[in-house]
């Protein structure tokens, strides 16, 4: 009986300006292999399925526990973290591609810095008076904490942007993740005092009005963050602010 293997078909690209190409690698099957551990096998012996010597595949990865968000890739057409995609459950040839909504640095490594820029633009922080000792923070209802916690687990991984049809070359839509973060900040008692600043950032170009309600984001989120709830509620906050602004003039 032939030894069981996993075949990875990997989309490669030398640099942001060069053409893409595909290479296939065949890796002996192990039940607890995942995409990253197989990419590590390739690094130790960078030889394609056809026996051609090549370079190690470049990839972005860090924690390997699905909490840092680094190793997000498109695997068999679906965006997800590569570390938690086990070899078990994969059959036939597995395609591995970089995310398409972000510029490729090299091979499977993409540049997601625009997501961090959005956090800056939307003032996604709690504006505390200072880090010196000001005693305990505000009390929080435990049910509200449990709900807010769901949103605090966003890794800025970009799955929701990759899956969103409204995030594309012709639009400036910032995507669902930032709306989830604005929603989170507004749930903290201190953060709520400054929610208007954040909503303002979501009212302009690329803001919440660009959401097309496809609801793909909530489907692909690896942390099951209720992003559509955030989009709905923040949409309401934005409308109320718009009305307030109108009458304040």
């Amino acid at each position: 009986m032939a030894e069981r293997t996993t075949v990875l078909r990997i989309k490669r690209q030398e640099n942001p300006r060069s053409a893409t190409y595909w290479e296939e690698f065949e890796i002996p099957y192990k039940a607890n292999h995942n995409i990253i551990s197989m990419l590590m096998e390739i690094r130790r012996n960078p030889v394609t399925r056809e026996g051609k010597r090549t370079t190690a595949v470049v990839f972005d990865a860090n924690c390997l526990e699905e909490v840092c968000g680094s190793c997000t890739m498109v695997i068999n057409g679906r965006v997800r973290q590569a570390c938690s995609q086990l070899a078990e459950g994969l059959n036939g040839t597995v395609t591995v591609e970089p995310m398409s909504k972000f510029p490729v640095v090299r091979d499977l490594w993409v540049d997601r810095s625009k997501m961090f820029d959005y956090l800056k633009k939307a003032h996604s922080w709690i504006p505390i008076d200072g880090t010196y000792d000001l005693g305990p923070g505000p009390r929080v209802n435990p049910q509200e904490q449990q709900f807010a916690y769901l949103f605090s687990r966003c890794m800025t991984c970009g799955c929701c942007l990759e899956a969103c049809p409204q995030v594309n070359d012709h639009s400036k839509f910032m995507g669902p993740a930032i709306i989830g973060q604005v929603y989170l900040m507004g749930q903290h008692p201190t953060g709520a005092m400054h929610q208007d600043e954040r909503l303002q950032a979501l009212m302009g170009e690329g803001g919440i009005a660009d959401c097309g309600n496809a609801q793909n984001c909530v489907e692909v989120c690896p942390k099951s963050i209720p992003l559509t709830t955030a989009i709905g509620d923040v949409g309401g906050q934005v409308s109320r602010k718009w009305l307030r602004d109108l009458f304040a003039k």
């Binding site: 922080w125 880090t131 000001l134 435990p142 904490q145 807010a148 989170l184």
Partner: peptide, 13 residues
């Protein structure tokens, strides 16, 4: 306390 003020969603009693 500082992290609580900075918005960390610590579990509550």
């Amino acid at each position: 306390y500082l992290f609580d003020r900075m918005g960390v969603m610590f579990n509550r009693t």
